[in-house]
């Protein structure tokens, strides 16, 4: 089944990033413009959800109507609250400022799992705080006094990008690897233990390289209603090009679709039947494929 993508918004200045379906409308971030916008599929209108987001990329709905965001320009996870304010969570891992959060997901207990890769882009303000000597998946959770604290989840990643939990939250999927550095670009499945730590990972898919260079790995992913992983990856520079993959929980590639633009960034299901797939791109668009034959989870 061929997916027909249509451009529903953009282009904006710089890439579009994180996506979150709210039930009736879609939120998406325009990273370099410092904005989160809202697309209404009924009217086609694009309105402003929030300004001054300081390069917020990944976004995810939390409990109580808040929206969590990876504020790369300030090296922290923040919460855009329904009253229009924006609250910090925590920003220190064992007393040190973490790196540049990129992608996140929220579990049923309200914990926030996020990737924390290194970045060459300067964060705002005086450059006082060095980056960590590791780039890991981290997790925000509440302590006994309800204050946010950060725990380290992975100890074997060097450039984590997309993060996603399986429907039963017993598996953490991590897209590891970036094209700008050595090392694998692969989709990993980490078993999540009862205490929240992770075990040894299985590799579900590996991206290769050819004479044109390394193949770009997964930058964004979401679940379908059957527990498959819908992932966007690739670029025009090498490999099969920008693509969307549907990958089973055991790593079988069920479908591949060409992406409508280069550098696909994130994808999320939306619309009334949750059977449309929305896609953001490095070129700064919002695309949608209706009638994908798959449905989003929840």
């Amino acid at each position: 089944m061929k997916w027909q993508f249509e451009r529903v918004a953009g282009p904006f200045q710089g890439p579009t990033g994180g996506l979150a379906w709210e039930g009736e409308t879609l939120l998406f971030s325009v990273i370099n413009e410092g904005k989160i916008l809202r697309y209404d599929p009924r009217s086609g209108a694009v309105t402003e959800f929030r300004r001054y987001t300081n390069r917020t990329n990944g976004i995810a709905l939390g409990k109580h109507g808040g929206l969590y965001g990876c504020q790369e320009g300030s090296r922290r996870i923040i919460e855009f609250r329904p009253d229009g304010s924006t609250a910090p969570t925590a920003w220190l891992l064992d007393g040190r400022y973490h790196n540049f959060p990129n992608n996140l997901c929220v579990d049923r207990g309200g914990r926030i799992w996020f990737s924390d890769p290194h970045s060459q882009v300067r964060a705002s303000g005086p450059q006082i705080f060095p980056q960590l000597d590791h780039a890991s998946v981290l997790r925000l959770e509440r302590d006994e006094r309800h204050a946010w604290k950060i725990k380290r989840v992975t100890c074997d990643t060097a450039a984590p990008r997309a993060v996603l939990l399986s429907p039963d939250e017993r598996t953490l999927y991590v897209a590891e690897g970036d094209t700008g550095r050595d090392g694998p670009r692969e989709l990993r499945a980490y078993p999540v233990r009862d205490d929240g730590s992770v075990g040894a990972y299985a590799v579900l898919h590996t991206f290769g390289s050819d004479h044109r260079g390394a193949h770009r790995g997964i930058e964004g992913m979401c679940l379908d209603s059957e527990g498959n992983i819908v992932a966007c990856a690739g670029w025009k520079k090498s490999g099969v090009g920008p693509s969307i993959y549907v990958i089973s929980a055991s790593g079988t590639i069920l479908e591949t679709h060409p992406a409508p633009a280069d550098m696909p960034m994130r994808c999320a299901f939306g619309d009334a039947g949750l059977d449309s797939l929305y896609l953001t791109t490095g070129e700064g668009h919002l695309y949608r494929a209706q009638g994908t034959g798959r449905r989003g989870s929840r």
Binding site: Y52, N54, S74, P88, W91, S124, G125
Partner: peptide, 20 residues
């Protein structure tokens, strides 16, 4: 200036910039 809304290590309780 909006530094306390954006700068690493100097954060306010409310990080939202309201004035344009």
């Amino acid at each position: 200036s909006p530094g306390a809304l954006y700068n690493v290590g100097m954060q306010a309780e409310d990080l939202q910039q309201y004035l344009p």
